[in-house]
């Protein structure tokens, strides 16, 4: 028995929408301009969006991942498949066949303000153009980006051109950069989410480290030296500095266990570093192929 949904008062319509999942609301939005407008006007949802593939956009809702996958085959449209627990896929036709356009459609239709994950994975398939456009839209609309991830090798130069955009993004949880860059790459990172992991971090100098407000910092292929670390620990000891820092890992060929400093002996046993306010940090040094400094802070 049909029911005239659009004759419901707006608040009641919102109550029904709340009980629909992203796939159902997407399909409803495709029924008419009016239904899309009704869904858009309901701003009670707290869904998140993920962009990490040229053929897929994911909506995170109520502990479920709703994967919208692009398809050229009309017979597969709106068919759904469960891949694993809390993960379901539906095939649809992306607007203009572009994942960027689908991202914007879902963003606007569902009134999403949080990007759960924005990821560029070069090895999957190249979609740097779409990725850059998504980043631009995220900045323009001041979206919160919880996790940003960039990983690749081949397109280092192209990604290097994209990097300045990162400082304009509102990244809150993690920034993971597994990207390799050209040797002459220079960059000043000024946005620091809770966690940064940079695997080709030769460009991140001591000044950037001193300004970093993250709680977890992991830098590989670093150019930081014992002298830089000395400067870092001198600052760390001062009261009120690095209030968030809990975990620091630096892998650098410029680090040795011979130079005098707080790390002396840390290659054999953990060394305690004590802040002027009594906070204790533990330092270890592993003299591997890439000498690795690990510093943990135990705060109340």
């Amino acid at each position: 028995m049909p029911i005239a949904l659009l004759k419901f008062p707006t608040d009641l319509l919102g109550d029904v929408f709340k009980l629909c999942n992203p796939f159902e609301l997407y399909k409803l939005s495709k029924c008419s301009k009016r239904t899309q407008k009704s869904i858009k006007s309901d701003r009670t949802k707290s869904w998140k969006i993920e962009f990490s593939d040229r053929n897929e956009v994911i909506i995170w809702a109520d502990r479920w991942e709703y994967h919208f996958n692009n398809s050229d085959n009309p017979s597969s449209y709106f068919k759904t498949f469960y891949f694993k627990e809390h993960m379901i896929t539906m095939y649809v036709q992306f607007p203009n066949g572009k994942s960027f356009d689908m991202f914007v459609y879902l963003l606007e239709t569902f009134g999403i303000r949080i990007v759960e994950k924005l990821e560029y994975r070069e090895y999957l398939n190249s979609y740097l153009d779409d990725f850059s456009r998504v980043a631009k839209v995220s900045i323009e609309r001041n979206l919160e980006i919880e996790n940003l991830s960039i990983r690749g090798v081949l397109e280092g130069k192209a990604v290097a051109n994209f990097m300045p955009v990162i400082n304009q993004m509102n990244i809150t949880k993690t920034f993971v950069c597994l990207q390799e860059f050209p040797q002459n790459f220079h960059y000043q990172l000024t946005t620091f989410p809770s966690e940064i992991r940079i695997y080709s971090s030769f460009w991140l100098d001591i000044n950037q480290l001193l300004n970093c407000t993250s709680s977890r910092i992991e830098l590989s292929d670093s150019m930081l030296s014992n002298k830089d670390l000395d400067v870092f620990f001198e600052k760390w000891k001062q009261i009120g500095t690095f209030p968030n820092l809990r975990h620091l890992v630096i892998r650098s060929k410029q680090i040795d266990d011979k130079s005098p400093g707080v790390w002396y002996g840390a290659d054999r046993n953990p060394v305690q570093v004590i802040k002027d306010d009594g906070t204790v940090g533990t330092l270890t040094l592993e003299m591997l192929k890439w000498p690795t400094l690990k510093f943990r802070v135990y705060a109340d």
Partner: peptide, 18 residues
């Protein structure tokens, strides 16, 4: 409308076309 296509949803919820 669980598992229904947009066309079926249009019929069930009596949604007029544009």
């Amino acid at each position: 409308v669980k598992g229904k296509s947009p066309e079926e949803i249009r019929e069930i919820w009596m949604i007029p076309t544009d």
